[in-house]
């Protein structure tokens, strides 16, 4: 038996919108810890890891660990039927082949339930070890989104370099080149608008902008984004989900020939 009641239902709507273009089908794993997901895009270049901790739900009942395969496009269709202020409850039975989404309007005058078919998904779970990153950049998520969008109109790939000067985003295309440097900026009252650069050693990596642009669909989940870079690891782009967990996107770098 599974019953998860999420008062801020819009969070679930946003999470699914953020990942549905990257991943078609995914297993949602439910345990005492929370609701989690790990999935790769079809070319295995990017990976998304989601965690919604049990404490973030108003009511959380998960009698035993279960994995529920869902088509994210279908899930999106159903969650779009929930209002932004609705409370969403996810209900399922052990071994059942469907899951129910219940939507309650804030003043309880409209209650809907949508039953969705589950699917069997063969997915390989990758072990992601804790790592020391060469550099970690925290910046406003809207700024990161703007940079990825702007650069993708000029080139296909971006070089992200962190030095003591700041973080530099560089692209090159048929029409020319572009460099955007963001410097550390802690001296503002609003911490969400700060750019904070922690650097253990300089790092420079090249990534496909197409994927980074896809990750920025999570921008509305968090005011800030954290970019963790190491020369021998995929970059991690993390959006924290208030009081609940995170959505992390991993992207494998381009490798020099």
């Amino acid at each position: 038996m599974l019953e998860l009641r999420l008062v801020q239902g819009s969070l679930l709507k946003k999470v699914i919108e953020a990942i549905k273009d990257l991943v078609t089908d995914a297993n949602f794993d439910c345990s005492a810890t929370g609701l989690s997901l790990q999935a790769m895009d079809s070319s295995h270049v990017a990976l998304v890891a989601l965690l919604l901790r049990s404490e973030g739900f108003e009511h959380y009942r998960c009698d035993r660990n279960i994995s529920m395969g869902m088509n994210l496009n279908n899930m999106s269709k159903m969650l779009k039927c929930a209002g932004n202020d609705d409370i969403i409850t996810i209900k399922g039975d052990d071994g059942g082949d469907t899951i129910t989404f219940m939507f309650e309007s804030p003043n309880q005058d409209k209650i809907s339930d949508f039953e969705m078919k589950l699917m069997d998904i063969d997915s390989e779970h990758l072990g992601i070890p804790e790592a020391e990153y060469h550099a970690i950049v925290k910046m406003p998520s809207s700024e990161f989104s703007r940079i990825c969008k702007d650069l993708s109109s000029i080139g296909d790939t971006v070089v992200i370099s962190v030095t003591k000067e700041g973080v530099k985003f560089t692209t090159r295309g048929d029409i020319g080149t572009a460099n955007i440097v963001c410097r550390q900026n802690k001296t503002i009252d609003k911490p969400d608008e700060a750019t904070i650069i922690e650097m253990n050693e300089p790092v420079s990596l090249t990534f496909a902008l197409r994927y980074l642009n896809s990750f920025t669909k999570a921008t509305s989940l968090s005011e800030s984004v954290t970019i963790s870079l190491s020369s021998d690891l995929p970059v991690v782009i993390e959006y924290k989900i208030a009081d609940m967990g995170y959505i992390r996107f991993y992207l494998a770098p381009k490798i020099e020939d």
Partner: peptide
Amino acid sequence: KGSQGRMESFFKPM
């Protein structure tokens, strides 16, 4: 421009 890396080159299946 370099070739695109894949996740399995960095993380091993559990």
